Simulated scan of single mutants.
Amino acid sequence: MSQYPTRVTESGVSVVRPDGRLNMVAAPALRRQLHELVDAGNTRVVVDLSATEFIDSSGLGALISGLKVARQAGGDLRIAAPTRQVTTVLELTNLNRVLATYDSADGAFDGDS
């Protein structure tokens, strides 16, 4: 299974960067990776979608699942730099109201402690 590149910002935020298609094939790996990050104590997570060319309902489900576990652990999950296709899907599903979107992964938690 795919393990997406992960890094930690200076402020301790974990950033995951899925690439390509986030569909029913790839979504389970992202869901698992997000859960593992939170289980390891990384409760502030950003999913950098700048390299994600396509997302479907399975990909959205992985993001919502990650959001849920992060919030249950006292943190949050935010998304950064979504491509046009991802932005369109978020708007059509109204998930842009649930998933906070930021221009950059490094700025997603600016102002938060």
Rank of each mutant, 00 (worst) to 15 (best):
P5E: 01
Y102S: 15
Q33R: 08
D106F: 01
E91F: 02
Q85K: 06
T52L: 02
G66K: 04
A26M: 10
L99T: 12
D39N: 07
D19S: 13
V16F: 05
R44A: 05
D39L: 08
A105M: 05
D56Y: 15
A62D: 11
S57Q: 13
R7W: 07
V45M: 04
A70P: 03
A80R: 00
E91R: 14
S2E: 11
E36G: 04
S2D: 11
L92G: 09
D76P: 07
S2Q: 11
S11Y: 07
D103V: 03
S57A: 14
G66W: 00
L49D: 01
G20L: 12
A40T: 08
S104R: 11
G61Y: 07
A108G: 00
E53A: 14
V86H: 02
L22Q: 10
R7I: 04
D39F: 01
N96K: 13
I79Q: 00
G41Q: 07
V45W: 03
L67D: 02
A73H: 05
V13E: 04
I64M: 15
V86I: 00
S113K: 10
S11T: 15
M1T: 14
G66D: 01
D103A: 15
V45Q: 05
S50Q: 08
R7H: 12
Y4A: 00
L49C: 02
L90T: 10
Q33G: 07
M24A: 14
L99F: 04
L63T: 11
G41Y: 02
L30T: 09
L95M: 14
V25Q: 15
I79E: 02
T43Y: 02
D48M: 03
E36F: 06
T87I: 07
S113T: 15
Y102C: 15
F54D: 05
G66S: 06
E36A: 12
A80E: 05
S50E: 13
D56P: 12
G75D: 05
P5K: 06
L37G: 05
D48L: 01
G111N: 03
T87D: 11
I55D: 02
A81H: 00
G61K: 09
R97M: 14
T9V: 09
V69Q: 10
A81C: 05
P82F: 06
G12S: 11
S50K: 00
V46S: 02
S57N: 08
R17W: 02
A70Q: 02
A62E: 09
R31Y: 08
G111L: 04
G12F: 12
F109G: 02
S50P: 03
R97T: 14
V15E: 05
N42F: 04
R84Y: 05
M1H: 12
R32S: 10
T6F: 00
L49P: 03
E36H: 10
L34G: 03
Y4M: 06
A105F: 03
A27C: 14
S65N: 10
G74S: 13
S2Y: 09
N96T: 06
N23P: 11
L95E: 07
L37T: 07
P18F: 06
D19A: 07
Q85E: 13
A29D: 15
